[in-house]
Design a protein around this nucleic acid. Structure first.
Lengths: 338, 338
DNA sequence: CTGAAAGCGCTTACAG
DNA sequence: CTGAAAGCGCTTACAG
C-alpha cells in the first residue's frame, strides 16, 4: 500500500554511485566538489524519474535546520492578522520555508504553550505578535540563538528586532482631525491589555487631547473572545456618556462592535456621533457612511517583518546586530464618518 | 551561545540509565515495560529539571509520523477560510498536531507546489479546499496512504472524505426567497472556476429559476487576485442589464465588490436592486441595509473536517472505510437587502 | 525489570 | 573526482 518514498540509498544502489556523491549533486555542490558533468546528469535524471524527495526530517536532524517559521498572532481570523499571514506566506515560501501558525487570544498561558511548541518543533525563526508577559520566555529563546522578529506588539526592553506602526502618532493624527472638524467630546474605546497608560494608542490620544486642551474620555477594555460583549460595552459607554460627539476605536473589531452598538441605539453617524477607527477593514471602506480610519501599512509591515527575519537567519549568530525597532507610518484615510 | 538542547543521551549518561528505559518512561510505556516506580520518578524528575524536549525530527525519522497537518485553502485572508483556520487550530493543537497553511489563489500550479511541499514535509494529514485540476495529484497522495479530507470543494469522483455545504439547496433557497418577495429579474454573479454548469451554486440557482418559470441571468466570473477588477465587472454587469431587480453573489468577496459597484452607480438597496450573498461576513451583518445571506455553518464545517481527519489518522490504512461526502445545511438569514 | 544495538535518511569531515 | 564511515536523536525488536 503505502509505497515507501525512495531514499538516497535507493538512488545510490540503483545508480551504483555513493550516496555522498548523490547528496553533493542534489544539493548543488557538484561544481564545488568537481563532480563530472555526466555523473551529475545521470543522477539528476534518475532522481527526477524516481520522484526522489529528500526526507526533511533526516536532513533537519543532521543539519539542525528545519526551514519552518512559527507565526504567532492574536487571532488568525482577524482580517489584520489574516492579511499579514497571507502576505508573509508568499514571501516565505519563495525562500523554501514553511509556516506554522497559532492564535494566542492574548492569553499568556496559551501563548507560552505555543512558544514551547515552536521550540519542540525546532523552528528556525519566529514571527510573533506576543501577548504581554511573555518577555522572559522570548528572551530565553533569543539567548538560545532563535531568530525572532516581533511585530504589532513590543516590550519595554529592546529584546529583538521589532516592526511597529507608529501607534502614538497615528492616534494623535486621528484626534487632531476630529478636533479640527469641530468635535469637542472625543472618546476613545481601546484595548488595554495591561495598564492603559502603557498603551501607545491611548498615549497618542491623551497627548493630542492635552495639546488641544480638551477633556479626555478613555474607555479601556480587556480582551474578550465573545464579540457580543464588546457590543454591550460600547452601548453602555454611549448611553452613560451622552456628551460624547465623537468616538475613536483602537482596533477594527472594537469599531465593528461600536457600529453595531450605534445602530442599536439608533444614533446617526456623523451627526449624532463621529467615528474613527485605528486599522482599516473592508467594512469601513464600504459602510455607509464610510468610516474614517488610521490605516496600517499592511504590505509594508509584512515585507519588513519577513525581510528582517530572513536576513537574521542568514547571518551567523556571531555577527548579530543589536536589536532594532522599525517604526512604520500610518495613513489617515478620511471618509464620511467624521 | 546556542545551548544545545539536552538529548536523551545526556539524560541517560547523567542518570546512568539506558536510553531505552528513558524512552519507555517518557513515552508512557513504563507500566507496560514493568519499570520500577522509583526509576520512573527519578527519570521524570531529571527530564523536567533539564527541560528535556524530545527532538521531533529524530522521532519522526524513526516513527515516520510527523504530527503535522497541512491546510490548503483558496486564500487564508478571506474571512471564511480564516475563520475555519482559527477553529481548526484549536481542535488540532489539543491533539498535539501542528498546522502548516498555504493559499492556492485557485492556481493549479501553485497548489501543486504546495502539495509537493506537504509531501516533502511528510505531513500526517491534509485538509484541502483544492482548486480544480488537482484530482490526480490528490488521488496519488491518497494511494500512498496520506490522510486527506476535502472541504468546500469536491471532485466528481469520490476521492476521499469530503465536507461540503449544500450549495445547490442553499442557493435555491435564496432564489426562492427573492421570488417570493416579488423580484422578477434575478441575476447571479458567481465564480466559475471551470464550466458554470458544473458549479453547484449556479446549478441551484438555475434549478430554482426554472422551477418558478423565470428567466436566468448568470454572470460567471473567473478568479482574480485584484479586488478592483470584480468591482469593475459588477459595474459593467449592472449597467448593461438594467432589467435586473435583484442580484445574488456566489461568494463574500464578490458581494463586497458588488456593494461597491452598487454604491458607485448610486443605486439603492433594495429598492433599485435587491442583494443576497452566499456566505456571511461581518460586513453584511452591519451594513445598512443589512445584507441577506446564505450562511455557512462555519463551526460545524471545521468540527466535522477535523473530526473526520483525526479519526482517519487513528485508523490503520487496512480498515479504511470508503470515502464519504458529508453535506451540511446552510441557513438563509433574511436582512433588509431583499 | 533493564540494556546493547540496529537503523530511520540524511550530511560532511576525511581519505585517497 | 569519488566513496566509506560517523553521527544527528530517537524507537524498538531482541536478549537476558
Amino acid at each position: 500500500m503505502t509505497d515507501k518514498k525512495p531514499s538516497i540509498n535507493d538512488l545510490a544502489k540503483k545508480l551504483n554511485v555513493s550516496k555522498t556523491t548523490i547528496s553533493f549533486i542534489l544539493n548543488g555542490k557538484a561544481k564545488e566538489k568537481r563532480i563530472s558533468d555526466s555523473l551529475v546528469e545521470k543522477v539528476q535524471k534518475e532522481a527526477l524519474k524516481l520522484g526522489y524527495q529528500p526526507n526533511l526530517f533526516a536532513k533537519s536532524l543532521r543539519t539542525g535546520r528545519t526551514n519552518i517559521i512559527g507565526l504567532m498572532v492574536e487571532d488568525i481570523s482577524n482580517p489584520f492578522y489574516a492579511s499579514i499571514a497571507k502576505l508573509i506566506e508568499d514571501k516565505v515560501y519563495q525562500n523554501g520555508y514553511k509556516i506554522v501558525y497559532c492564535s494566542t487570544e492574548n492569553d499568556k498561558t496559551r501563548a507560552k504553550d505555543f512558544l514551547a511548541m515552536f521550540n519542540t518543533l525546532s523552528v528556525d525563526g519566529c514571527i510573533l505578535a506576543p501577548p504581554k508577559g511573555l518577555e522572559s520566555e522570548i528572551k530565553e529563546m533569543i539567548e538560545k540563538g532563535k531568530n525572532i522578529v516581533l511585530f504589532d506588539r513590543k516590550f519595554g526592553s529592546k529584546l529583538t528586532d521589532t516592526v511597529m506602526v507608529n501607534n502614538q502618532q497615528g492616534m494623535y493624527s486621528a484626534v487632531k482631525h476630529l478636533i479640527e472638524r469641530g468635535y469637542k467630546n472625543i472618546g476613545l474605546v481601546a484595548l488595554a491589555l495591561v495598564k492603559p497608560e502603557k498603551e501607545d494608542r491611548i498615549i497618542g490620544y491623551k497627548q493630542a487631547i492635552t495639546d488641544y486642551g480638551m477633556i479626555p474620555y478613555v474607555y479601556p477594555l480587556p480582551f474578550k473572545t465573545q464579540h457580543q460583549e464588546y457590543v454591550a460595552d460600547v452601548k453602555l459607554i454611549l448611553s452613560q456618556n451622552k456628551q460624547l460627539d465623537a468616538l475613536l476605536f483602537g482596533t477594527n473589531y472594537l469599531a465593528i462592535a461600536g457600529l453595531e452598538a450605534i445602530n442599536q441605539l439608533y444614533l446617526k453617524i456623523p451627526t449624532d456621533i463621529a467615528v474613527v477607527c485605528f486599522d482599516d477593514h473592508d467594512l469601513f471602506r464600504i459602510y455607509k457612511p464610510g468610516i474614517t480610519v488610521v490605516a496600517q501599512p499592511i504590505e509594508e509591515i509584512a515585507q519588513t517583518v519577513i525581510d528582517t527575519l530572513l536576513q537574521n537567519m542568514q547571518k551567523p549568530a556571531s555577527e548579530k546586530k543589536p536589536a532594532r525597532t522599525i517604526s512604520l507610518s500610518t495613513t489617515l484615510i478620511i471618509r464620511e464618518s467624521s
